[in-house]
C-alpha cells in the first residue's frame, strides 16, 4: 500500500514536471506587490570593502600577535620553568603567552575564511595560497620581533596594557642576579624596572642547569614568598647567558662546596 502510494506520488510529480510551470508570473507579482527592490550597488561595494578590510585586519592582527608571542617567549622563556618538573608547571602556565597565540590562530582562521569568499579562492590553488599566507604572517612576525620593535614599544607608557609584564607570581620569580651572599645563602635578584628581591636558597633547592651562573645571569626561580623574602626551591639560568659565561670561563661555585 505504501509502495503504491509512492509510485502514484512519483507519477503525479512527473505529470506536473511536464507541464510548463509559470513561476515567472508569481515572481513578477511578488516583486510588484511586495515592492521588492534591488539592492543598491553601494551595498555590494561596501560589502566588498568590508571583506577586504576584514582580511587585511585579521592578517595584521595575526602578524602582530605572533610577533608579540615570540617576544614574550623571549622575555620569559617559559619552557625553562619545566626544568623544575611539576613545581615549574604553574609558573609555566602563568608565563606562557597563551592568549597571544590563541588570538593569532583565531585571526588567521578568520582571515582564511574571509579569503574563501573571493572568487579567486576556487580558481587558484587555495592550499598554496593558505601556505603563502601562513608563511608570510609567521615570517613577518618573526622579523618584527627581531628588529626590536617590541623593545621600543615596551617603553611607551600607552602600551603598558600590552607590554606590561608580570615578573613574579605566587610561586615564581624572574630576574637578574645582582649579588651573592655566600655566607647566608642569599641571592639578590633584580626584577626588571628596578625592584630587588632577596632570595633565600633552600637547603634542598635544585639547580637543573647547574650552578655555573654569575652576576648578570637571568634566573628563573620557583619557591614561596616568606614576607618580603623569597625562599627558592629551584633556580635555573637562561641557556644563552650560560653559554656566554662558560665561554668566558667564569665559573663561580655557589652553595659553598668549593669556597
Amino acid at each position: 500500500m505504501q509502495k503504491k502510494k509512492k509510485v502514484l506520488m512519483e507519477r503525479n510529480k512527473l505529470i506536473k514536471e511536464n507541464l510548463d510551470p509559470d513561476i515567472a508570473e508569481s515572481v513578477m507579482q511578488e516583486i510588484e506587490q511586495k515592492h521588492v527592490k534591488m539592492r543598491s550597488p553601494i551595498y555590494f561595494v561596501l560589502g566588498s570593502t568590508i571583506l577586504t578590510l576584514g582580511v587585511i585586519c585579521s592578517l595584521l592582527v595575526t602578524i602582530y600577535l605572533f610577533n608579540l608571542f615570540l617576544y614574550k617567549l623571549r622575555i620569559f622563556v617559559p619552557f625553562k620553568f619545566l626544568d623544575f618538573g611539576l613545581t615549574g608547571l604553574q609558573p609555566f602556565v602563568e608565563t606562557f603567552p597563551w592568549w597571544h597565540i590563541v588570538i593569532a590562530i583565531v585571526a588567521v582562521i578568520i582571515g582564511i575564511e574571509l579569503l574563501k569568499q573571493y572568487d579567486f579562492s576556487y580558481h587558484k590553488n587555495f592550499m598554496a595560497l593558505i601556505l603563502i599566507v601562513l608563511v608570510s604572517t609567521v615570517g613577518i612576525g618573526f622579523l618584527l620581533d627581531q628588529i626590536g620593535l617590541n623593545e621600543i614599544a615596551e617603553n611607551e607608557s600607552n602600551l603598558q596594557v600590552i607590554y606590561g609584564h608580570k615578573y613574579k607570581g605566587e610561586a615564581w620569580l624572574v630576574g637578574t642576579l645582582k649579588d651573592i651572599d655566600y655566607d647566608n645563602d642569599v641571592l639578590t635578584i633584580e626584577i626588571p624596572h628596578g625592584e630587588e628581591v632577596e632570595v633565600i636558597v633552600d637547603n634542598e633547592a635544585i639547580f637543573p642547569s647547574g650552578l655555573g651562573f654569575n652576576l648578570g645571569t637571568e634566573l628563573r626561580i620557583v619557591g614561596i614568598w616568606e614576607g618580603e623574602f623569597f625562599r627558592a626551591y629551584g633556580i635555573t639560568g637562561v641557556t644563552r647567558i650560560y653559554r656566554r659565561l662558560r665561554i668566558n670561563s667564569i665559573q663561580p661555585c655557589y652553595g659553598g662546596s668549593c669556597q
Binding site: 514536471e17 515572481v27 534591488m38 543598491s40 550597488p41
Partner: peptide
C-alpha cells in the same frame, strides 16, 4: 513539486534583489 517551486521562486526573488551585485 510544490516545495521545489517555492524554492525556485525564492531563488528568482533573491537573484532579483542581488542583481546589481
Amino acid at each position: 513539486y510544490d516545495k521545489a517551486a517555492d524554492v525556485v521562486q525564492d531563488v528568482f526573488i533573491k537573484s532579483y534583489i542581488n542583481l546589481q551585485g
